[in-house]
Write a protein that binds this DNA or RNA. Structure first.
Lengths: 210, 210
DNA sequence: CACTAAAACGGAGGCGCCTCCGTTTATTAC
DNA sequence: GTAATAAACGGAGGCGCCTCCGTTTTAGTG
């Protein structure tokens, strides 16, 4: 392990209130992250940083000041996207019955993974390098998933003997079986299948069809 | 794949089905490998390819024609060096008593590893990617080592209940314990210690004794 | 020897990476 | 409001990567 920089004025607590960024700086930073998200989705993690800066309407120097390495930028984008995936859970829970919310969220999860498949290798490396990132993110996903599941269980629309990590584990199969043309379809079928399994033996035998 | 150039008058035993390189091409290729060896030793595997070409007195285009990727070049250099390490075994065997030859070879092995330590991570990646390379190279090293050992055993200067892979395994400890200032010294001591162990219980108890 | 086709050369050019530093801007103090 | 100061900006510049293609060299043939 490399030696940590000793805690000086800058104490690395979790993100909140770390440092009050100057208004313009914050604006530029946001624009960079946004542009990076688009670029990474379009061209993979090797997208040109200069193009990202250009797209964000800032100089390349600004990009490098905010994100000293490509990996920093990738990590922030990745975190943001996981965050938004999790936020979608709340959103769905508000507008749908619990089991439907759960199913739709899982489909969304598939979509999310789909956009990331190309980057799998690079992400793998990043996640290995930065093990905090992985546990961090899978923790969050588990949390979001748990709420959906608990609601559905409480509602009686799915069986009660499963928990978030079970389902996440089942979804894990999506990572595998790489690169086939019909990956997307198979994954969606997997989710449907999983849902059927979850509904089987539920106290309330509802058909959530559609 | 297009059809291979038919094996005609010149079939090289060493390189199967390789094409006879034009004289100037061969010359340039050799110069490149030589320059690359120097550069990699001096600046690590990230050494500038343009600088290597410059040093070899050829254009960058020539470098890329011979070695389409950096990894190709690294691999060739690595192979060459292992080759020369193995060749040293024969050389030493000719000019020294078997046990001395063995000991000196092991010291040389240490020196060889020493130059490679900085590159450890990059090499690790390369060796993982290209698994043939690793088994290939460790096979060769084992072979060289075996000859030294068998000669020493036959000569009675070391004990007879060890073989090449035992010793190689013992030397394996050299890879570990990274980065200390006294790494080199400790490694050399490890070799001496190992030699003592090998001499212990030999039929011929001391040099000059018989 | 001259001639030719194939092989090899080499470097310009286009792009991306990253650093450095003079200029601009937000914030704070008065 | 103005001034002072720290923070942030941005892009030129230097270097490296890699490709592409016009030029040169070699090996073969009569």
């Amino acid at each position: 392990m490399a030696s940590q920089p000793p805690a000086t004025t800058k104490d690395k607590a979790e993100t909140p209130a770390a440092k009050p960024l100057r208004a313009d700086a914050q604006r530029n930073r946001d624009a960079l992250v946004e542009a990076a998200a688009v670029a990474f989705a379009a061209h993979g993690v090797d997208a040109s940083l200069e193009e990202i800066a250009r797209q964000a309407g800032v100089g390349i120097g600004t990009l490098y000041r905010h994100f000293p390495t490509r990996e920093h930028l990738v990590e922030v984008v990745y975190r943001r996207e996981v965050e938004s995936l999790c936020a979608a859970a709340d959103e769905l829970a508000l507008h749908h019955p619990p089991d439907i919310a759960l199913e739709q969220w899982m489909q969304r999860f598939v979509d999310y993974i789909a956009t990331k498949r190309g980057l799998a290798t690079s992400l793998r490396i990043l996640l290995n390098t930065n093990s905090t990132l992985f546990s961090d993110m899978s923790g969050r996903v588990t949390l979001a998933l748990r709420q959906l599941i608990e609601a559905a269980v409480a509602d009686g629309s799915i069986r009660s003997d499963v928990d978030a990590s079970d389902v996440l584990h089942a979804l894990g199969g999506i990572y595998s079986a790489p690169d086939t043309k019909d990956w997307r379809d198979r994954s969606r079928r997997l989710v449907s299948l999983l849902m059927d399994g979850l509904r089987f033996g539920a106290t309330k035998s509802a058909k959530g069809g559609g």
